[in-house]
């Protein structure tokens, strides 16, 4: 008996649906978590990370990037 026969009889189609449901749940959990009140300040801080990182000599007339 070949592997493909075994896989054929195993009826794995349902696993793909299970995987999709798991992905959906993980995704919803991530989404819900984002809007919880306790995290808002941390997220605001994280969003500013690119602006607080650069001590390179200011070579342009642009303003400095202070958070």
């Amino acid at each position: 008996m070949k592997l493909s026969d075994i896989m054929g009889y195993a009826n794995l189609a349902v696993y793909a649906e299970v995987a999709m449901v798991i992905f959906l749940i993980v995704f919803l959990a991530i989404a819900v978590r984002l809007w919880l009140p306790g995290r808002q300040q941390a997220l605001r801080d994280a969003a500013r990370l690119p602006l607080d990182d650069d001590p390179t000599p200011a070579a342009t007339p642009r303003g400095s990037t202070h958070g």
Partner: peptide, 11 residues
């Protein structure tokens, strides 16, 4: 989950 069925289900 997308690839396995194409490879292993003979039909």
């Amino acid at each position: 989950f997308e690839i396995i069925p194409t490879f292993l289900i003979r039909s």
